[in-house]
Design a protein around this nucleic acid. Structure first.
Lengths: 114, 114
DNA sequence: ATAACATATGAACAGATAAACATATATACA
DNA sequence: TGTATATATGTTTATCTGTTCATATGTTAT
């Protein structure tokens, strides 16, 4: 037997909230996306790429991290379609995949700066 | 003696990248902010609050989580200024603190839906 | 083919974190 | 005052995550 749940909010309100809530899978994906932005190393990489495409070693050197760490994080960014890769000889140049990245980070910055 | 670092990118480019990079502390704060969005329980809470202010117990019931879990997550959201609280008797109503929350989540959704 | 370089991968470890459980605080009402 | 209700807090635990180290893959040049 389930508990008798009761609510403070109006029944109508509760109904609206539940109606407008996107499906769980979508909310899960959204959280996953933000999780990618939730690491300072990855944020730094994205910021660096605002200016120019860069190869892995340059990114590592610029940010003062190891090549391995850069590579691992670039993989996360690529998997989540935040950056794309272009191969040129032995080097691989990474760049932002679209301007959502810029917009999302900008909104975040606005929130912080107030 | 430091390694002799060399870069693939132009010296000028590297300089610009470093110049435009915000201070580390700011980048760290930004990552912290996105970390808050990077959890599906918190995303669900924020989505619920898009419609209406809600008390803790309602949020817990609506999302199918325990009161304790809701309270813990609301604290995280409040600490990061994403929600604000209004006390009314024994109940505490939570609501979104500003529209950055909405904008950030919207941008994220756009990225996912493409 | 071999050497040097650029990047990626796999495994292990340390630190972070969300949830659960028990309990504390605070308010309302009898 | 005592009791029920609403929310918050502290602690533990299981899981996740970022980094490091070692190694592998792939590319270029000699």
């Amino acid at each position: 037997m389930a508990d008798t749940e009761y609510l403070c909010a109006e029944t109508e309100t509760v109904k609206t909230v539940l109606d407008k809530m996107p499906p769980d899978e979508m909310l899960y994906d959204l959280a996953e996306l933000f999780k990618v932005f939730g690491d300072s190393t990855r944020i730094k990489i994205l910021y660096a790429l605002f200016e120019s495409e860069l190869c892995v070693n340059d990114i590592a050197t610029l940010l003062g991290i190891t090549q391995t760490a850069a590579s691992h994080q670039l993989r996360v960014l690529k998997t989540n379609k935040l950056v794309k890769a272009r191969k040129n000889g032995k080097m691989i140049f990474y760049s932002l995949s679209d301007d959502h990245v810029y917009k999302i980070i900008s909104q975040g910055m606005e929130h912080i700066e107030e």
